[in-house]
Amino acid sequence: MVTITDLTPPRSRSASVSTTSSDAALPSFESLAPPRPPTTKAEEETRVVVEGLRDEVRLKVDAGPGCGGIAWPSGEVLSRYIAYRHGLDPSCLQNKKILELGSGTGLVGIVAGILEPSCEVWVTDQSILLDLMKVNAELNLPSTQHKRNVHVAELNWGEDLPKSIPVKELDIILAADCVYFEPAFPLLVQTLCDLAPIDKEVEILFCWKKRRKADKRFFAMLKKHFNQFPVDDDKPGAKEVYSREGVSLMRLVRKK
């Protein structure tokens, strides 16, 4: 069970979050979102090559909402891994219900939806990024399809899970580049625990890029609730390439 004592960050100059008792409520994810000035224009577009897809993935990017509106290295690594695995064994995604946390542009979830039309994917983030994810889903999924298999939903870490998502039926949880803002660490751990309660069978693929010493604190918090296993079945040579860039790909398994 996750407790507020486990998750509440200590007071520091770098964090504006503090609590006065062990039963204090966690701050909202939206209130912790770091404001950032725009570094790209809303109409800018990037393209991501993912081996196994017929076409490049087109992404509208916009850094105006913050760091989530652009493509980051871990998202590309995770996208290429699921594409490689699907190429070897399509059943890994067939008829699966998949949720991506902190989707930003929606890249990873969109790739999963393109790879396997039979799966259903929910790409999630704060409300300010929903329109961007909707545009990117429309750019990459067939417009003739009556109902797209990639759905866009708001999900703020640490808050109640949306009723629009069939949480109990989820088979796979994807997360890439979610470790970037220290005050949000306890909220992310809380949400991972909510999505993967003890004894629930769900695969969690977690990809992140090492940037700061503070990241160690997140994984110390995570270790209380999840075992962490490096992914070792990626395309030969792929791990060596992304490891040099400080990117790690792992599976999380909820502790009993």
Rank of each mutant, 00 (worst) to 15 (best):
V152D: 08
I173V: 15
S28C: 09
R80H: 03
T39C: 00
W122I: 03
L101I: 14
A71N: 04
N156W: 03
A153Q: 09
G158F: 02
S118I: 08
M1Q: 00
L26F: 01
F219K: 05
V123T: 12
I198A: 13
R54V: 03
V17G: 08
L32I: 10
E169D: 13
G87E: 04
K96A: 09
K168I: 06
G106L: 05
Q126L: 15
P162A: 09
I165G: 12
A63M: 04
S16H: 15
Y180I: 02
A83K: 12
V121K: 03
F219H: 10
L161F: 07
E240P: 02
E203S: 11
N227L: 11
Y242H: 11
P166N: 07
I198R: 13
K210R: 10
V50G: 09
Q94A: 15
M221K: 06
C67A: 14
T40V: 07
G68N: 06
F219N: 06
D23N: 02
I82Y: 01
T5C: 09
L101E: 01
E100Y: 11
R148C: 09
G246Q: 03
A83R: 14
S118L: 08
T191M: 07
D194A: 10
L101M: 14
I114T: 12
K223N: 11
S14E: 03
A176P: 13
G69I: 03
A24E: 05
F218R: 06
E43N: 12
V17H: 02
L170M: 14
T20Q: 10
R80W: 07
H146Q: 12
K163N: 05
F185L: 00
I172T: 14
F229V: 02
C193F: 06
V17Y: 00
K210I: 13
W122V: 07
E30R: 15
S14P: 00
A238P: 03
A71W: 00
S143F: 04
P236V: 06
P27F: 13
S248D: 12
M250E: 14
V121E: 06
S16Q: 15
K60P: 00
A15Y: 01
C92P: 11
W122C: 11
D160L: 11
V247P: 00
V77K: 09
P65Y: 08
S31E: 15
P90L: 14
S79V: 06
N156T: 12
D194S: 13
